[in-house]
Write a protein that binds this DNA or RNA. Structure first.
Lengths: 242, 242
DNA sequence: CCAAAAGTGTTGGTAGTACACCCATGA
DNA sequence: TCATGGGTGTACTACCAACACTTTTGG
């Protein structure tokens, strides 16, 4: 195998030495709860380098698995998370981004409902935890760059696609959606205008159930997504500036 | 090096065999001329597999160069093109996308002014040529997927950023810009509305020079970009639906 | 004078924005 | 009855979309 690898390199592009770059995947997983707000999932590294540091879940890609499979496997192994939405974010390939060997990381961007499962640290992680987006820990490697890119993407994405289905529960009061948008966009949103805008798209259905109250205040109606219309709109790529 | 590589893999993520994935870059370079329209640059492969097929310029990344350096080097080597704008597009990592070994390709997306240089085939290419976007040849590997992704990106991008500076010359008649948008979006554009829209942004300066005529018809004024305003707007991320 | 391309304004519809008061509930 | 959060409508503005005739040039 090693021989064929060398031959391959020479053959393909006249490189003088065998290319020695490893490929890994990392995932920036966003979760949202009304209590905790918008959070990102990190694991605590078991091994050097950066042992004990917080880092994005991820790891080397196996020889026969696709990148997406690698992400899902690593998430499962390291944190027990089953992802709800996954898209490729960006590849980070700076030669010195890993202090040992060169490692190219293909970063992914994911959304989950954190209430849907319990976090558990596992194979490669001492611990796994959510951190609020405004209160991130020091991170290993260049993971802070990856996180920043993901936040930028999330912000951009939410203006042209109705994210939310992947982050909220089956039924939720309208104010949940509003708080989510407000958290992602990091600014206040006018309740009335926002509702008008959203309802125009027609992918939200108002149920006649009422919110169970967490404190005082008037309980709101619960809404749910009309999945058909929702995914149809997502596919068509609607414009969705809030 | 081989030993340390194996140790590294085991150490990092409990992989049983050494990861054997190569990393390459490929570039989808768009060019525009009023005569030829919107075109993409391809090279004709000198070597197997797909010898003699058309393919995207690209190749393996060297151990100590960044991905962007690799793209620029390959473009220079294979076609003599000096790129004008470059951004990462997507990484293609399917295990079987290369029939020999596994090769992950980080694809880039580029814009150039084709009139600025002559194409020349070189090291790894028998030939290099522009193909009109509506008349692409059969392509090697999964390059058609990469191209389609790039076209989708270009279409999306042009609606929220004023592309054009990178594709047009220093001075151009307004109709050039309009034809460019029309070519990218693949639909007709209302001349009056388009001009109103563009001029509102204020990054175009009308000069008092006239177009040299290619045929009959009234010659138009030449315009140029106000680079300062243009790049300021690009940075701020304007909304730019046409 | 004819063909080809450039230049130019108005109107109606739609969506965005700003803004304030009343209602239902729990404590 | 008070505090909390939910629910709702209007008026103004800005942008979008649709649309046709005149001007300048070359042949």
């Amino acid at each position: 195998m090693i021989l064929s690898s060398i031959k391959f390199s020479l053959y393909l592009s006249c490189v003088k030495v065998t290319q020695n770059i490893k490929v890994s995947v990392d995932a920036v997983v966003f979760g949202y709860t009304s209590e905790e707000g918008l959070s990102i999932l990190f694991i605590k590294r078991k091994i050097d380098p950066f042992q004990g540091s917080w880092a994005l879940p991820g790891g080397l890609v196996l020889n026969n698995e696709s990148l997406e499979e690698a992400v899902e496997r690593e998430l499962e192994e390291e944190s027990g998370v089953k992802i709800n939405y996954l898209e490729q974010l960006y590849s980070f390939g700076h030669p010195k981004r890993d202090p040992r060997n060169r490692v190219l990381s293909v970063a992914y961007f994911g959304l989950v409902r954190p209430t849907a499962f319990r976090l558990k640290a596992d194979t490669d992680a001492m611990d796994a935890a959510w951190f609020h987006i405004k209160d991130l820990p020091e991170l290993a490697f260049d993971h802070i760059d990856i996180v920043n890119k993901a936040i930028t993407r999330l912000k951009a994405k939410i203006t042209y696609e109705p994210i939310g289905f992947e982050l909220l529960g089956k039924k939720f009061p309208f104010s949940e959606l509003e708080k989510l948008y407000s958290a992602v966009l990091d600014r206040q949103i006018d309740r009335r205008n926002f509702k008008k805008k959203i309802m125009r798209f027609g992918f939200l259905i108002e149920t006649d159930e009422k919110q169970k109250l967490a404190g005082s205040g008037r309980p709101g109606n619960l809404f749910k997504f009309d999945e058909k219309k929702y995914f149809k709109l997502v596919k068509e790529g609607i414009n969705f500036e809030v």
